[in-house]
């Protein structure tokens, strides 16, 4: 009886896996046009938004030396006004930070410590440029930057080697297309709202070559695709006790070039 049940069960599993397995082999080194198209639609739609907000609830696995996985989380509120206004609040485990960009100055303010630092740009630049400069000059990667660039597709797909439309799902009651991509270092999945507002609703990244396969997961909500902002939202006014401490320039290139 048990043997029969096992065989029957095994058969079911085999049947269930076969289509997916066959598809996986077929698509091992290809990006399905349908998957790319859905991602492109999301990218085009995000790029078309002039003033928008979203919230992100994210978790990340931390591997302890023992191999134990500890999950930590953060909540990020995002406000974007293209071409050159940005505000982010990040609250999570050990982190309470605000980011401001008013077109000329990017400020990081750490509320816990009462510290802040500025990256000043001599002329007004757009959001893409300040995201790049923050990364290359001071090693700051802003929360949600993947989605804030004018063309998110370009960055997301930069290392993609294969991609597939897994199927239809729901996230927070919203019907979505579930896409799965593989890169050299990470595998990632994204869930994109169906219909005329192809917004990202969930995002998962797996560090597949790390034992334990630690993951980052973000669920997006509170999308407002035509928000109105007060300009003060994007300008940092230091609280009385806040202290400016400055950034350490990245890679020590200042010292290298300017060595006395």
């Amino acid at each position: 009886m048990n043997a029969v049940r096992s065989i029957a069960f095994g058969g079911l599993v085999f049947i269930a896996l076969t289509p997916a397995f066959a598809k996986d082999v077929d698509q091992a080194n290809a990006i399905e046009p349908e998957a790319a198209q859905i991602l492109q639609q999301m990218s085009d739609y995000l790029g078309s938004l002039k003033r928008f907000t979203l919230s992100s609830e994210s978790t990340i696995d931390t591997l302890m030396p023992s191999g134990q996985k500890i999950q930590r989380g953060a909540h990020v509120d995002v406000a974007i006004q293209r071409p050159n206004r940005l505000r982010l609040n990040r609250n999570g485990d050990d982190v309470e930070q605000e980011f401001y960009f008013d077109g000329n100055t990017l400020t990081l303010y750490g509320k816990q410590d009462g510290y802040y630092a500025n990256l000043g740009v001599s002329k007004t630049v757009d959001i893409d440029t300040v995201l790049d400069l923050a990364r290359t000059e001071i090693g700051v990667i802003l929360p949600a930057a993947d989605l804030i660039y004018q063309d998110p597709y370009e960055g997301l797909m930069a290392d993609a080697e294969s991609g597939t439309l897994v199927g239809t799902s729901t996230v927070g009651g919203v019907e979505v297309d579930h896409l799965a991509f593989r890169g050299r270092q990470v595998d990632w999945q994204i869930w994109i709202e169906k219909g005329d507002k192809p917004l990202p609703r969930k995002y998962v990244i797996t560090s597949k070559w790390i034992a334990g396969g630690p993951q980052f997961t973000a669920v997006f909500s509170d999308w407002k695709t035509s928000a109105e902002f007060d300009d003060a939202l994007f300008t940092f006014s230091p609280p009385p006790k806040a202290q400016e401490i400055g950034f350490v320039p990245l890679r020590g290139k200042f010292d290298r070039r300017g060595a006395e």
Binding site: S58, A74, V95, I141, P143, A145, D146, A158, D159, V186
Partner: peptide
């Protein structure tokens, strides 16, 4: 890997960044 990374792929790492940061000196 490139900007893939850009934020979500890394941002949450920021809080755990100390051991990864290349610090001058």
């Amino acid at each position: 890997m490139s900007r893939i990374a850009a934020s979500f792929k890394v941002v949450a790492l920021a809080m755990l960044w100390a051991a990864l940061v290349e610090i001058p000196g």
